[in-house]
Every structure is written in C-alpha cells, then in structure tokens.
C-alpha cells in the first residue's frame, strides 16, 4: 500500500501540469536543416511557403486529424483552436493555394516517415523521440 501511494505521488509530481509532454519538431538526420524558427514552422504548417529561403522544398507531416497531439501542436504554435486551423486549411485547399500537410497514423509512423524521407518535417510527443532524427524546434509543455 505504501509503495502504491508513493508511486501515485511520484506520478502526480512528475506529470506535466496540462498532461502534455513537450512536442518536438523533427527532420531527417540527412536534412541540411539544422534549426527552424517558430516563424518558419508557422509558415510551413500554415501553407505559406513550400520551401525555405535556400530554395529547399519541404513536405510537412501532420498527426491524425482528430488526435489530441495535433490540436495541442497547433494551439501551442499559433494560439488558435484546431477547429480554426481546419477551417483555415479548407480555405487554402479550396482556393487552390496549398495542400494541407500529409497525415500520418501516429507518433511512430511520424518518426518512420521522417526517417525515410529527407525532405520532410514532422512533429511528435517528446517521449517518442529517438536519436535517429534531428530536433529542430521544441514546443515547451508550458507554452
């Protein structure tokens, strides 16, 4: 019983306040991208630019449309609810301006897709991070 109480107490202390770990933005280890600014990530994920200043084209990847991590990613990145982001992307798609990021199935699929494709940018919860990919930005849990 004592162990159980201690374990529960430890879990409460260790859990992030909002229940979220950090979300990290990742690229392929062979990518020439070393770091991205918050502004660049917003432009990439809001369909404003298909490439970097260097001319390198980037394919952004998104988590499942109804996933909590996707909602949290856009909330932290843009400050807007995911419903506003979905409506924004409908505007871009149906005005022929840009295609939404490609959807992957989950955090593991995100990791594997980024590993297989050097021109992709993705994001995942930090507990799924491995040393095989490069972290180019971190959205802190308290943002």
């Amino acid at each position: 019983m004592q162990y159980l109480i201690l374990t529960l107490a430890a879990m409460i202390v260790l859990l992030p306040e909002n229940g979220w770990a950090d979300i990290v933005v990742i690229v392929n280890p062979d990518s020439s991208i070393v770091k991205l600014s918050r502004r660049q990530i917003i432009d990439i994920y809001m369909g404003r630019n298909p490439g970097l200043e260097s001319g390198q084209k980037i394919q952004p990847l998104d988590q499942p449309i109804n996933s909590a991590v996707r909602a949290e990613f856009y909330r932290k990145l843009t400050g807007k609810p995911v419903s506003a982001i979905n409506a924004y992307w409908a505007r871009l798609l149906f005005t022929g301006r840009a295609f939404p990021p490609l959807l992957v199935e989950d955090n593991k699929a995100m990791l594997n897709t980024v590993l297989k494709n050097p021109n992709t940018v993705g994001y995942l919860e930090s507990q799924y991070l491995t040393e095989r990919v490069k972290v180019v930005y971190k959205l802190e849990k308290n943002e």
Binding site: P64, I65, E105, A109, N112
Partner: peptide, 10 residues
Amino acid sequence: CNQHIHAFDL
C-alpha cells in the same frame, strides 16, 4: 480522401 500514409516512403 481521408487515407493516412501507410507506406512510410512518400
């Protein structure tokens, strides 16, 4: 239209 990527190679 809602298919996720299944093959990791895009």
